[in-house]
């Protein structure tokens, strides 16, 4: 492993610019999509003339409810897209490190994905 105080900059580190652009784009698009879905959900729920549900539907019911045309499920899916965006950002970071053959940070990113997956499993139970 090289020290980060080395005079010669590791090209894998120097080349982080395109990785930053890819991650940034993912975060931005995810945010816009989730906000758009939430606004659509708000409009649909308001158009229905009912109050929005006070609880989100369970995770396993979101897609079936969407397929059955449930308007509150649109709101919930906007929230879930928002949740998914930082996770997709980590996956994009992993792909970028793999492409740069940066084994050290590819491993760290995989470890983070494993930690996040474990967190989801704990939350589900």
């Amino acid at each position: 492993m090289a020290s980060n105080s080395d005079a010669t900059v590791d090209p894998r580190v120097e080349n982080d610019v395109s990785a930053s652009v890819a991650i940034s784009r993912t975060l931005f698009v995810g945010l816009l999509v989730s906000i758009a879905i939430m606004l659509l959900g708000l409009a649909l729920v308001a158009g229905e003339g009912k109050n929005a549900a006070t609880h989100v539907v369970p995770l396993d019911r979101v897609i079936p409810d969407l397929l059955h045309g449930s308007r509150p499920a649109v709101l919930d899916s906007g929230i879930l897209v928002l949740f998914a965006t930082p996770l997709v950002g980590v996956v994009v970071a992993f792909v970028q490190f793999v492409r740069r053959r940066d084994a050290e940070f590819s491993l760290i990113t995989v470890l983070l994905l494993v930690v996040l997956a474990a967190g989801f499993l704990v939350a589900l139970h």
Binding site: N4, D6, E14, F105
Partner: peptide, 9 residues
């Protein structure tokens, strides 16, 4: 001492 991981400088 700086970390031995490859951070940007």
């Amino acid at each position: 001492a700086p970390s031995r991981l490859r951070f940007r400088p």
